[in-house]
Design a protein around this nucleic acid. Sequence first.
DNA 1: ATATTTTACGCAACCGGTTGCGTAATAAAA
DNA 2: TTTTATTACGCAACCGGTTGCGTAAAATAT
Lengths: 343, 343
Amino acid sequence: MKKQVKHVTIYDIAEKMKISPATVSRALKDHYSISKETTKAVKKTARNMGYLPNTLASSLRSNKTNTIGVLVSRVNRPFISSLISGIEEVANLEGYNIFISQSLDLEEKEIGNVKAMFSSRVDGLIVSLAMETTKFDHFEIFTDRNIPLVFVDRVPDEIEAEKIVIDNFAAAFEATEHLIEQGCKRIAHFGGAQHINVYHDRKKGYLAALQKHDLPVDEKLITYSNLGKDEGFSMTQQLLELENPPDAIFSANDTAAISAIQFAREKGIHVPNELAVVGFNDDYLASIISPSLTTVAHPAFEMGKIAASHLLEQKDKSDLVASKTTVLKTRFVIRESSVRDHR
Amino acid sequence: MKKQVKHVTIYDIAEKMKISPATVSRALKDHYSISKETTKAVKKTARNMGYLPNTLASSLRSNKTNTIGVLVSRVNRPFISSLISGIEEVANLEGYNIFISQSLDLEEKEIGNVKAMFSSRVDGLIVSLAMETTKFDHFEIFTDRNIPLVFVDRVPDEIEAEKIVIDNFAAAFEATEHLIEQGCKRIAHFGGAQHINVYHDRKKGYLAALQKHDLPVDEKLITYSNLGKDEGFSMTQQLLELENPPDAIFSANDTAAISAIQFAREKGIHVPNELAVVGFNDDYLASIISPSLTTVAHPAFEMGKIAASHLLEQKDKSDLVASKTTVLKTRFVIRESSVRDHR
DNA sequence: ATATTTTACGCAACCGGTTGCGTAATAAAA
DNA sequence: TTTTATTACGCAACCGGTTGCGTAAAATAT
């Protein structure tokens, strides 16, 4: 039978040393009013007894958990996992842990998760909105109490809070213009849910580029979906079956763009000469696939780092309502999928 | 100036309703000893007042956090993020949240994280070991107290605890044998850190297959690294510069295998005819790259689900020391990178 | 009508740290 | 030597729920 070890508390230490728990608590925190000898002795005893602090008790009293909540759609997406990695790096450096939940792009789950985060008394929350989300009052729990709240990438216009985004309009404009410069005349667009800022802006950028170059907008060339792998296939198929099919696709993400390339490859349609493709995100895949994918490099990792550091800064100037929007630079990466042979 | 909302507690509810906090607490939990009318009234008042429970207080008293700790090397790796996704799915279904930290493959960080997890009083811990880890006594915090502990994938032999793994030996054996059947005579191996069970077993399987088919083992064809993208390139280069280069590579992960394919492509070396390649994991990339990568499909998501559900099961039969090892099936996926033309 | 059981709730201790305030002991100043 | 300042620590309340135990009131049994 295994020995059952009990939790060691500061009371146990205090009893053994014949001092008060208050002194133990202060000594462990290097409080100035405790002599160096006592402090040293306490720490030594604590170590010997295998003491480990109970974060719950500490957090309950001090109302501080040293935890940052992170609320994303799903963790196993390249963009999200890089984002999280960036958050974790900064958080950890500052002595914070992160608490993750997934909304699975469902508004209801997002609402529940926000409440759970609050109940766990996270010191701040970083959110990338669920696809489904159209209302935002569930975030008032945080804003009403001035608990730091930072939105990243998929951000709401409706809330006054700190936001970290990229210039989706400009990036989409550049991407589309690039296709036009390659000689493409009928450029399709794979769009995401239009109530989400990122997808809305990308479509706007796409439209603006067409307009600038006097290309007609054909609504039949614009499709909407949640841009998954399967959707990429079916949208491509649907477009190529049109009596007047597109000669290029600007996809609002890489996943769907890559499906398009794969579909074309299977059908023997040449990319980029018959169908040029540009994606968005620069997932690791983009450089691997053949032909490699022209795309917009999205600084996911950096975005995470900035979100975390801005969030931690907010805690200092707590009375000020932070509602700054930080726009990060994207990088347009031209690869094989969009550069046509000049025949 | 924004209104500063205070936290509503059960005391606030009790005061407003002129009842005791104990009754409020019980009513909110549907305790049998509280009348239905009171329960209903309390819940209604709680809702109106915007009450949200303080998990810290509850957890402190009840010694239960409804949180599962997850300790991995890094979240932004395909295998890991799928694993986490699986864990999250089961955990969430059972009303648990997950608390994630990264060891970044450093033993020291892993030790710190284990302590932090304990201090946070997670109800259980799921661990995939850091590359660096060679000692394991930091896990005694959990085992000594019979707190559920489950290791996944990279597991220690030295600890008696529940483990979820795949049969790395068999999978590697099958992969290597497949290469032999394709007519490969000089098969190289990209190995990981050999004190980690998964990499050790994969190498063993590789060696066993060679031996079965009376192929000589050439130590020069076996390289060790942490199997990153860059390492994949340099190892491939190094191997191909040998006076007697290999005609195949069995890599212990996909990342390095894909680098090998890319390197070969750049150098004009035909895959698979001049160099056959087999990877391990079946990352999403594997099916995308051209030539597509033959690999071992690793059930990461399912592994996460099983780890979480086994962990939650442990909590019931708490006196029993669970030390079962569950071996999941892998699936050998044959694609283009290993199937030679029969010339 | 009296005794017994059931129902519905309150009291107060508890979980394990944290912290404002008070004070004895020692040191420095007058 | 007396007064004041400093040092080092203890007391006890507190954070916000949870829970064992006790009990008045209502319901049921005798």
